[in-house]
Amino acid sequence: MSFTPDLIAELEVLALFNLDNHQEGIKVHTTASPELVAAARRLYEKELTDQPDGGYLTSLGQDAAEQAQKLLIILNVAERSEPAGA
C-alpha cells in the first residue's frame, strides 16, 4: 500500500478540520483546486464527512482526522529534528 495523490489530497482535507471544536466544519469551495474538491467528495462517499463539500466530520471521520493530524505532527517533528545533511 502506498500514498497515492488521491489519498494525500484526502489527508490534506482531513488536516483542515479543527479538532478542538466539533461544532466547526469546513467548506471546500468550487474555486478550490480540483484535487481538493474531489477529495472532499470522496471523504463524503466514504462516510467520513456529512456533506460532499466538507461539512462536519462523522464519528469515523473524527477518528480519521485525529490520526491524520497526529501523523502530520509526528512527521513534522521528525523532519525538524533530523541532523543537517541526513
Rank of each mutant, 00 (worst) to 15 (best):
Q51D: 13
L75S: 10
E35N: 02
L75I: 11
L16R: 13
L48V: 03
A9V: 06
Y44G: 08
Q69Y: 09
K70Q: 13
I73P: 04
A84Q: 08
A78H: 13
E45N: 14
A78I: 07
T4F: 00
A84H: 04
A39M: 11
A65G: 01
A86Q: 09
T58F: 00
L36D: 02
T58G: 09
G85L: 05
N76I: 05
L19Y: 04
Q67K: 12
D50N: 15
K70D: 02
S2I: 00
S81W: 12
G61R: 04
S2F: 01
Q23G: 11
D50S: 10
S2H: 09
H22K: 14
Q69W: 04
L11R: 15
A64S: 04
A78E: 07
G61D: 01
E10V: 03
S81A: 08
G55L: 06
R42M: 01
S33W: 01
V77G: 08
E10D: 10
E35I: 00
A84Y: 02
A64M: 05
L43R: 02
N18D: 13
L60D: 08
R42N: 08
E66P: 05
L14E: 01
T4S: 02
Q67V: 06
L7F: 04
R41S: 11
N18C: 07
R41H: 00
Y44M: 04
A38S: 06
D63H: 00
A84G: 08
N18K: 13
P52K: 10
A68Y: 07
L36M: 09
G85S: 02
N76P: 06
P83T: 05
H22C: 10
V37R: 05
L71P: 09
A64P: 03
N76G: 15
T49W: 02
A39T: 04
H29L: 15
R80C: 12
E47I: 07
F17S: 04
H29R: 15
F17H: 08
A84K: 11
P34H: 15
A40Q: 07
L19W: 05
Q69H: 09
V13C: 09
H29D: 03
A40E: 05
D53K: 10
L48H: 00
P5C: 12
E66C: 07
V28M: 06
A38Y: 03
I73F: 13
Y56R: 12
V77I: 12
D50W: 02
E47L: 08
R42S: 04
I8V: 09
V77T: 10
T30G: 15
Y44E: 05
G25C: 04
N21V: 15
R41G: 05
P83F: 14
K46G: 09
A84L: 00
T49L: 06
